[in-house]
Computed example of a mutant assay.
Amino acid sequence: MTTMNQQLKYAKLIPLMLCFFAMGFVDLVGIASNYVKADLNLSDSEANIFPSLVFFWFLIFSVPTGLLMNKIGRKKTVLLSLVVTFVSLLIPVFGDSYGIMLCSFSLLGIGNALMQTSLNPLLSNIISGDKLASSLTFGQFVKAIASFLAPYIAMWGATQAMPTFGLGWRVLFPVYMVIAVIAILWLGATPIEEEKADQASGFGDCLKLLGRPFILLCFLGIMCHVGIDVGTNTTAPKILMERLEMSLGEAGFATSLYFIFRTLGCFSGAIVLQKVSARSFFILSVCCMLIAMIGLFISHELYVIYAAIALIGFGNSNIFSIVFSQALLAVPEKRNEISGLMIMGLFGGTVFPLFMGFASDAIGQNGAVAVMMVGVIYLLLYTWKIKK
């Protein structure tokens, strides 16, 4: 009987993991913004509006999504997010103008805000609390696969004229759109029993949770994590183009390298976090990023820059899962609201690229690295608040 229950649990995990893969579609904005910048001849600050716009919607929709889950349930909210994501991926098929890409990235951000807010607590309906951090990390591992595939698909589309039906690098969008459709159908057909919804809360009641010092620290930690994530995703190719005069096609490998090591970090984290304390692993992760930022500051050597990008990918891979699970376990009776607040912290993906764009326009890519360093220093200070 126990074996059958375990088999049913794993059967339900598969469509959820496919949803985590769809969650990774948001990371295509990094490489896509570089292609749009080249196509439309934009400055760094203008191009960085795209990732900033994507993550702006987390500020607007995350907390309302947490409240929406109380009314319609987590699974239905995830399905809604997948539908919005599907529409966002359909739009670029019809053109690549500035307005079209703004519309597409806006919907991609809205869909991802809905998805990240609802999918993580939906997973907690299947996985017990003591395994939640490692399970969330495995979900991030699956998400990272979609993230590091994006630059390769875009590069293939940009260099192969006929197979991409004239879409060029934008072939990335219909490829991921098909996967979104599969995720909608599979999750829709999967029965998932949800616990009784949290007691109805208002928007103000939800925001009041930020008055708890530990929850506020977690919120800022999520902001720094995603700021570093989106910042590296967007800036890594620019560093190579600035310092080594690479073409965008050649420099795009840096984004893939980041996500390759982020994927490896998530996979190893899913295993290590079952045996090692969250605090110890968190300290190791932040130290990797600190060393990497120093390397990006001082070196113009290709192998050092690649090593630094890889270290950031590995170090940043488990930050979200640990901070998110710490927040959920701190206030278990308010999981939907806490999830909304933590995902609202992904607004850091708006704040960091904006400051990085201005800083890099002023003094070059070292300015962008300096902005990310601020996030790393905060995470280093946050480690002393993590529960063992």
Rank of each mutant, 00 (worst) to 15 (best):
201 S>D: 13
351 V>K: 04
135 S>Y: 07
237 P>F: 01
182 I>A: 01
186 W>I: 08
171 V>C: 01
21 F>Q: 02
290 L>E: 08
232 T>K: 03
201 S>I: 13
162 M>D: 13
199 Q>H: 12
59 L>D: 09
338 I>F: 04
234 T>V: 15
252 G>I: 01
261 F>T: 13
225 H>W: 13
96 D>H: 10
9 K>C: 05
197 A>L: 11
3 T>Q: 08
87 V>Y: 00
10 Y>Q: 14
134 S>A: 15
315 G>D: 07
93 V>P: 02
181 V>Y: 01
85 T>Q: 00
198 D>P: 15
285 S>V: 11
388 K>W: 14
287 C>Q: 07
343 I>M: 13
336 N>Y: 13
232 T>Y: 03
314 F>H: 08
2 T>P: 02
216 L>D: 01
237 P>R: 04
195 E>M: 14
378 Y>K: 07
9 K>V: 03
222 I>C: 00
264 L>V: 12
223 M>I: 15
348 G>L: 08
140 Q>E: 14
5 N>G: 09
319 I>P: 01
159 T>I: 15
85 T>I: 09
346 L>Y: 09
94 F>Q: 04
61 F>M: 11
280 S>T: 14
160 Q>S: 15
122 L>I: 09
191 P>L: 05
74 R>S: 11
326 Q>I: 11
227 G>C: 09
76 K>D: 10
11 A>K: 13
26 V>M: 03
377 I>K: 00
60 I>N: 04
160 Q>I: 08
332 P>K: 03
77 T>H: 09
227 G>P: 05
122 L>S: 06
379 L>I: 13
349 G>W: 01
255 T>V: 12
327 A>Y: 07
309 I>F: 02
125 N>L: 12
149 L>C: 06
336 N>C: 12
141 F>K: 05
347 F>G: 15
179 I>M: 02
340 G>K: 03
27 D>P: 03
305 I>A: 05
121 P>M: 07
57 W>R: 09
374 V>R: 04
370 A>S: 14
263 T>C: 04
264 L>G: 12
301 E>S: 14
148 F>Y: 10
128 S>Y: 12
366 N>W: 08
17 M>R: 05
132 L>P: 06
354 L>A: 15
220 L>G: 04
313 G>W: 06
221 G>D: 02
38 A>D: 14
22 A>T: 13
87 V>T: 07
345 G>D: 06
34 N>K: 10
270 A>K: 05
345 G>Q: 06
360 S>W: 07
16 L>V: 08
8 L>G: 09
2 T>N: 10
247 S>D: 09
350 T>H: 10
348 G>S: 06
106 S>R: 08
158 A>Y: 08
380 L>G: 07
111 G>M: 02
102 L>E: 08
287 C>N: 07
34 N>Q: 12
211 G>T: 07
268 S>Y: 09
241 M>K: 10
93 V>L: 01
224 C>A: 14
191 P>A: 05
224 C>M: 14
289 M>R: 04
99 G>C: 05
63 V>S: 00
162 M>N: 12
351 V>Q: 04
272 V>G: 10
156 W>T: 00
1 M>Y: 08
158 A>N: 15
186 W>T: 10
349 G>Q: 05
152 Y>Q: 12
74 R>H: 12
56 F>L: 15
323 V>C: 03
60 I>R: 04
156 W>D: 00
203 F>T: 09
205 D>K: 09
370 A>G: 11
185 L>R: 03
143 K>Q: 14
28 L>N: 11
174 P>D: 00
198 D>C: 14
182 I>D: 02
7 Q>E: 12
208 K>I: 10
